[in-house]
Computed example of a mutant assay.
Amino acid sequence: MPFNLESFAGNPKEELSTLRYATKQDLCDLAEKCNIVVDPAYVKARLLSNFLDYLINQEIIADDEVQALRIAAGVLPPVPVDTEVEKIRLQLQLERVKKETTERELYLEEKEREAREKEREAREKEREAREKEREAREKEREAREKEREAREKEREAREKEREAREKEREAREKEREAREKEREAREKEREAREKEREAREKEKKETIERELYLEEKRAEAREKEREAEIRHQKKLQELSLSNRKEATLPATFEVLKASKLVPDFDERDPEVFCQNFEQIAETLKWPVEFWSLLIRNKVKGKAAFVASQLVSENDYTVLKKTLLDAYSITIKGYRQILEILLKLSIQLL
């Protein structure tokens, strides 16, 4: 029965018979666990004798209970009688026990070695069997692959032969078609040059007409803008005279000075212009009744034309809505034109 340090420490009296199988290191660990001072250089028999004396002194076991263990472990007990016969008997008994213990340990070691060797051989044979099985499957797969490749090559050979005959027929057909295409190509080339010449002339004519049309439209737009500006200025003058007749401006608000602080009007984004104007007017606390008058002095282009149509309207909210509505219609119109041009370009492609 093998020695176990934890089991022996828990029940030394029951596990006493296993102490004979303890190694020198086991006895040193056991002595350290029981706080017994020993020299690691002691031989195993002396370590065992010291530990047995400790068990007897602690009254854990009786002296007669360890007598057989001393003999089995090679530790001579105290000789009760000083006789040579008893000494020889005990010596012979000790040597016999030592021999039996040594033979048993050698036997166990040999059995353990044989078991490990058999286990290693079994694993090796199992590995070789798996390797042979894998090689057999690999050879079978290679054989099937070669057979498939052979059939594939035979099929390819027949296919190539058929393709060669087909290519020969196609070559004669292509040669005939090539002569026909060459004749058609010369004809198409002549037609292409003629069409290209006509296209260049047509494009040049359309470019000139388009430039003339755009220039005419730009001239008309400039003329309309100039006329709208003139009408706007006239109505502003009339409005200014009318306002001077109807009411007197408060002494604390100077319209001329305030008009210099109004931001410039940008036709590309009239909404931002209105937001900036309202922020300045609210910050400087300008009277709301003068807001429409201040805006009329700054707008231009299409906004000036719209403002001139509302010369009698002094409500800033109405004037602002009218201006934004006028420019929103223009933006919508531009989007419609762009969508039409995009559809035409897609159709031409």
Rank of each mutant, 00 (worst) to 15 (best):
I61E: 04
A62F: 15
D64P: 01
D64S: 11
D64A: 13
E65F: 06
V66D: 00
V66Y: 00
L69Q: 03
R70C: 01
I71Y: 00
I71A: 00
A72T: 08
A73W: 00
V75K: 11
V75L: 12
L76Y: 08
L76N: 06
P78Q: 09
V79D: 11
V79N: 15
P80Y: 11
T83I: 03
T83D: 08
E86I: 04
K87E: 05
I88M: 14
L92S: 09
L92K: 14
L92E: 12
L94E: 05
E95K: 14
R96E: 13
V97E: 13
K98E: 07
K98F: 00
T101K: 15
T102E: 09
E103V: 12
E103T: 09
R104L: 06
E105F: 14
E105D: 10
L106S: 15
Y107F: 05
L108W: 02
L108D: 04
E110H: 13
E110A: 12
R113I: 06
E114H: 08
R116N: 07
E117H: 10
E117G: 06
K118P: 01
E119H: 11
R120Y: 02
E121W: 02
A122V: 01
R123M: 08
K125N: 12
E126V: 00
A129I: 03
R130V: 07
E131Q: 15
K132A: 10
E133Q: 15
R137G: 05
E138V: 05
E140W: 01
E140M: 09
E140F: 00
R141A: 04
R141N: 05
A143K: 11
E145D: 11
K146V: 03
E147A: 15
E147P: 01
R148T: 06
R148K: 15
E149N: 04
A150C: 04
E154M: 06
E154I: 13
E154R: 10
R155F: 10
R155S: 10
E156P: 01
A157V: 04
R158E: 14
R158N: 08
R158T: 04
E161L: 08
R162P: 04
E163I: 12
R165A: 15
E168T: 12
E168C: 03
R169Q: 13
E170W: 02
A171C: 04
K174G: 09
E175V: 03
E177G: 02
E177Y: 03
E177W: 13
E177M: 07
A178C: 11
A178G: 10
R179H: 07
